[in-house]
């Protein structure tokens, strides 16, 4: 705890705000079901799109369900799908980058060329084509989001790995007869972790924006599941009344992504300065 506090104190103000927002949403996603005052699908209000009140903190939605409860459940889908896909994208991209950097030659050529091609497809277009072809169950969405952001991670990881692979200590390890796998995992990978962590955070932001965008279009998380983007979509008719049912989930996504972005930026800056 003290370690965490001193870490928080070392950040500039925007970074601290970011850290607070990220922790807030992580906790909300973890403990959401325990905190939710009502069952997620229960019709608890006779009115629809009712405003904020003591009984329904964030009002009720288009069917008279409690928005706060649905928001807490929605945050789970958004945060965990985003984290899962970001991790999968980073692990895949970095593994490919290590293979490319250690083998060089035609392996590198083929993998790099493939990734260059994939990165030339705008991410939303790529995701839409994949959703049209394969559908959008939760697992597919996770995979689609991960595949969409593998090339970006690969490009960064490959650049770092190639730099490291050219360093004297790696040449030394090679001369000692270490196997390529040992060089990749034991010598190169440990020195890549810090910048890769920052990249993981960025992927998370992109993926949360992509998936909630897809859900907003009705092409992402499908009922009965609902992430934050789905909540914005299903309550869109509440906009004429300015109902909290539509504003709250939209703000929730924005605070999560903006917070994560501020935190990453502060961490990156702290490292270079």
């Amino acid at each position: 705890m003290t370690l965490f506090l001193s870490f928080a104190r070392s950040l500039p103000l925007p970074g601290r705000i970011g850290l607070f927002l990220v922790c807030f949403w992580l906790l909300a996603a973890l403990a959401g079901p325990l905190l939710a005052p009502y069952a997620v699908g229960a019709f608890v209000d006779y009115d629809v799109f009712s405003p904020m009140s003591g009984k329904f903190w964030l009002g009720s939605d288009y069917l008279g369900r409690d928005v706060l409860s649905r928001l807490l459940w929605g945050a789970r889908y958004t945060v965990f799908l985003g984290l899962g896909a970001a991790l999968l994208a980073s692990v895949t991209g970095t593994s490919l980058a290590l293979v490319a950097a250690v083998h060089k030659g035609w392996v590198d050529e083929v993998v790099s060329r493939t990734m260059d091609t994939l990165i030339s497809i705008p991410s939303k277009v790529f995701a839409l084509v994949m959703v049209a072809a394969f559908g959008s169950s939760l697992w597919l969405l996770l995979l689609i989001a991960a595949v969409t952001y593998v090339p970006g991670n690969f490009r960064i990881a490959r650049a770092i790995a190639l730099d490291l692979a050219a360093m004297d200590y790696v040449t030394f390890a090679r001369a000692q007869g270490e196997t390529p796998i040992r060089i990749a995992l034991g010598e190169i990978l440990p020195n890549m972790l810090h910048p890769l962590l920052a990249d993981l955070g960025l992927r998370f932001v992109f993926i949360v924006l992509l998936l909630s965008g897809l859900s907003f279009l009705g092409l992402g998380v499908q009922p009965p599941h609902a992430d934050l983007g789905s909540l914005v979509r299903e309550n869109i008719s509440g906009i004429t009344e300015g109902a909290p049912a539509i504003i709250a989930p939209a703000l929730a996504i924005a605070t999560l992504t903006v917070g994560a972005n501020l935190l990453i930026h502060a961490l990156k800056k702290g490292k270079t300065a």
């Binding site: 925007p14 932001v205 924006l209 909630s212 965008g213 907003f216 983007g229 914005v232 906009i239 004429t240 300015g242 539509i246 504003i247 939209a250 703000l251 996504i253 924005a254 992504t257 903006v258 994560a260 972005n261 501020l262 930026h265």
Partner: peptide, 26 residues
């Protein structure tokens, strides 16, 4: 720099929704 850093991470539909709320509804 703080404003642009935040803006890049705001989802388009939040901007659109708030825009509609302010300029068409209110």
């Amino acid at each position: 720099s703080l404003a642009t850093l935040s803006m890049v991470a705001v989802p388009e539909f939040l901007v659109a929704t708030l825009g509609v709320l302010v300029f068409s509804v209110k």
